[in-house]
Computed example of a mutant assay.
Amino acid sequence: MEQKQNVLLLGSPGTGKTHLATSLGLKACERGHEVRFFRVADLVAQLEEALKGGTLGRLKRQIDTCELLILDELGYVPFQKQGSELLFHIIADCYERKSVIVTPNLEFGQWNRVFGDNRLTAALVDRLVHHAHILAFTGESYRLRHALSAVQSPPSHSVER
Rank of each mutant, 00 (worst) to 15 (best):
E107Y: 15
D93V: 04
D72V: 05
T103L: 05
R97N: 12
L74W: 05
S99H: 04
K81R: 13
D93K: 14
F108H: 02
E73P: 06
V100T: 07
K98Y: 01
L71Q: 07
K60R: 15
E85C: 05
L51I: 00
T103Y: 02
L56T: 00
H89C: 03
L51D: 08
I91N: 01
K81G: 00
T65W: 06
A50M: 07
E49T: 12
I91R: 09
L51R: 15
R58V: 05
E49L: 15
E73C: 07
I90N: 02
S99L: 03
L47H: 11
K60F: 10
I90D: 00
I101C: 10
F79D: 02
L47M: 07
R97D: 02
A50E: 05
L47K: 11
C94W: 01
D72R: 04
I101K: 11
G83K: 02
K60N: 12
K98D: 10
L68T: 10
L69Q: 10
V77E: 13
K52N: 10
L51C: 10
A92I: 00
G109N: 15
V100P: 03
L87W: 03
L56I: 00
L68M: 14
I90W: 10
G57M: 04
L87R: 11
A45I: 01
I91K: 05
L68D: 08
L47A: 06
P78E: 11
I90F: 03
Q80K: 15
L51S: 14
A45K: 12
G75T: 00
G54D: 02
L87N: 08
L86I: 00
G54A: 10
Q46F: 07
S99V: 01
E48I: 05
E107K: 15
S84W: 03
I63H: 13
A50Y: 08
E96Q: 08
D93L: 08
T103G: 03
P104Y: 12
A50G: 03
Y76L: 09
I63N: 09
I91S: 04
Y95C: 12
V77N: 14
G109P: 01
Q46H: 14
